[in-house]
Lab assay of single mutants.
Amino acid sequence: VFVDDHLLEKVLELNAKGEKRLIKTWSRRSTIVPEMVGHTIAVYNGKQHVPVYITENMVGHKLGEFAP
């Protein structure tokens, strides 16, 4: 499973602090992992960042699938 390192670091850091804030990313190719559930990730679609709230059903899919 591929997840960009910088994105995973941000998610794990927020989980350690117990925070839930918006994470901006250009990494549409990253796979959604269970650690991301409950976070809102702003995924770049080529024009703007689209906020995507991550749920359990999204695990295993790519971030780009949810930012048309």
Rank of each mutant, 00 (worst) to 15 (best):
V1K: 07
V1L: 07
F2S: 04
F2Y: 13
V3R: 01
D4M: 02
D4S: 05
D5M: 15
H6Y: 14
H6K: 14
L7K: 00
L7P: 01
L7N: 01
L8M: 15
L8E: 01
L8K: 04
E9F: 11
K10P: 01
K10Q: 15
L12H: 10
L12T: 09
L12P: 00
E13D: 07
E13Y: 08
E13R: 08
L14M: 13
L14P: 01
N15F: 02
N15P: 00
A16W: 05
G18L: 05
K20P: 02
R21Y: 12
R21Q: 14
L22M: 10
L22Y: 06
I23M: 04
K24L: 09
K24W: 15
W26L: 09
S27K: 05
S27M: 06
S27I: 07
S27R: 05
S27T: 03
R28A: 06
R29V: 13
R29K: 14
I32W: 00
I32A: 05
I32N: 00
M36E: 01
V37E: 10
G38A: 11
G38S: 12
H39A: 02
H39W: 06
T40D: 07
T40N: 10
T40Y: 06
I41Q: 00
V43Y: 02
V43F: 02
Y44W: 14
Y44G: 03
Y44V: 04
N45I: 05
G46E: 07
G46I: 05
Q48M: 15
V50W: 10
V50E: 09
P51T: 08
V52R: 06
Y53V: 12
Y53I: 13
Y53P: 11
Y53D: 11
I54C: 10
I54F: 02
I54D: 00
I54E: 00
T55D: 14
T55M: 15
E56D: 13
N57L: 14
N57K: 13
M58C: 09
G60I: 03
G60H: 14
G60K: 08
G60R: 09
H61V: 09
H61S: 08
H61M: 14
H61E: 10
L63D: 00
G64F: 09
E65G: 09
E65P: 05
E65C: 10
F66S: 05
F66V: 07
A67T: 06
A67Q: 05
P68K: 12
P68Y: 07
